[in-house]
Nucleic acid binder design. Sequence first.
RNA 1: GCCGGUGUAGCUCAGCGGCAGAGCAGCUGUUUCGUAAACAGCAGGUCGUGGGUUCAAGUCCCACCGCCGGCUCCA
Length: 616
Amino acid sequence: MEPREARLPSLRDGLRAFLIGPRTPRERYAAEERTMSDETAFHQLPAEERLFRQRHSAAHVLAEAVLEMFPEAKYAIGPPIENGFYYDFDLPRPLTPDDLETLEARMRVSVERDLPIVGQQIPKEEARRIFAEQPYKLELIADIEDPTVGYFRHGEFQDLCRGGHTERTGQLGAFKLTHVAGAYWRGDEHRPMLQRIYGALFPTQEELDAYLTAREEAERRDHRRLGPELDLYHLDPISPGSPFFHPKGAVLYQTLVDYIRSLYPKYGYQEVITPQMFDTEIFKTSGHYDLFPDMFKMRDDEVESGLKPMNCPGHCMLYRYGLHSYRELPIRYAEFTRLHRNERSGVLHGLTRVRSFSQDDAHIYCTLEQQPEEIAHFFDMVREVYGDLGLLDVEVKIATRGEYFIGEIENWNRAEQQLQEAVAAAGWSYTIAPGEAAFYAPKVEFHFRDALGRSWQLGTIQIDQAMPTRFGLRYIGADGAEHVPVMIHRAVLGSLERFLGVYIEHVEGRFPLWLAPTQAVVIPIADRHLDYAEEVRSALAAKGLRAQVDSGPDRMGAKIRQAQLQKVPYMLVVGDREAEARAVGVRTRSGGDLGAMPLEELVERLAGERDSRASE
RNA sequence: GCCGGUGUAGCUCAGCGGCAGAGCAGCUGUUUCGUAAACAGCAGGUCGUGGGUUCAAGUCCCACCGCCGGCUCCA
């Protein structure tokens, strides 16, 4: 979250660049501003522009190959994307991996032929004639407002296209078709499902290979692989999307909760506990009921109950109990209890998308005047937490009002304005996500990428003046009259499950000492050292450090290997020399053998490292 | 939820109409060892679940469930 310039480049950054490419605003705008009127020679264009064009042209060459294989195919859209390109098709049958190889081979024929790619503006009428058999193209033509549309061709292939291409099909760079996936036409689930073919493309074979290798390495960091490997959690079909946290995972989970909880006095939060299950009337009052039908519900006699999917309605009930004076505000209710959302089966994803989770959730009730200060106050906490956790690669998004919303427009506008000012004041760069606000409030979202480059929202803050009205919340102002408080929804880590998923990948399972489930393994060299090993363990335990003795029959080398694979921060070897000197042989998971250290010194070192929450 | 793929031992995988396998992990025994894997033996399976085809089904077909890749959704 510090300015990017202040960060030292790391191996991770290099990997990330491979995986997700540059994400500057410029790239996005450039994509929209490109026109076919650009006369600059391809080789003279900026590298980023060349790559964009290569990916775009590769999509055309892919479509050419597909149309040749399936003359009856309908083709839809095929843009360049991060790392490559895709193209959507309506095909007579599902594609197989063998088809991808065939198509890729056909694409290389076009590259070999090095055909010129030419574009021009043509009248809509002519375009309709050319694409008469292509319903998706006709729909696109109908939606274009200009009297003319872009038309590109190379060889026998022709496409409706805004442009931004290489000059010839021989300039594509290095590419590989990677996978097929379903995709709705125009992203609308009520419209036909098309087959999307994805390809990766980079300027050179070396870069493509590096990307593909980086992807394979990233798969090894996937929390869905590391989590069970490190004995943190598992999932079972008996309760899809509901993690079983093992003792080690639970330590991690609870340590995070304890950490956030420890900050609450400083930031003025009061922890509360509200019910798990409510009469669904409460969600009708809040407005969630109709909008989010996937609540876990049950009916008992006349009453329909639901497992709470969020805490805000419960906190409103809590606020509503008793009268509040403006002198009490802001009131900040925090809660960690469990939430349940019946997410659609297809979206479940390891820990990052689950049905059962808890958040470091809180709702702040304050006056309109206190609102800007509360936002800044929250950002202070975000900065502290993300800093302690070493999460520097945050992306900040401001999500603004969408088509459906509750509340007054002027309140929305003011809240959006204040959020934007607060983010700017915090010194964070951000993007605007138009129309992506919650239905009741605009929000700021803090996003992080997982190992494979997928973006996940962790923290958020939402300025809500609608729900307090719906729940009839009041406070007595200095003027003696009743006023409606503002309600701020906020979470720093967001869903703890999701946070853990992202965080496991962020640190590649090498948790800093304060979070590591096992902080040290004591490794006796022979059985005669077991007593002393146990002494070392209990000396650590006395300081609250989580240590285990590996008392198994394996050789020391095997025990070290085991501890390394489990990514235990410290391995403490004890043999004759150490027992004699009341010392331990210290080895770290990253630095190898550090040599012997007196036991007392070791305990102090570890306790200090834990208390400082040092990152590795 | 939708499209496609996939499901064999705790884990990673082989077997793809004809006797269910390997490595690791586990257990037992021997070994007591100085910084990433000692040796030997043993045990481990309704081949996701339910139907169907067949003399015979992990193997072919259908349905359901889970998982994977996307899409959609995201309070």
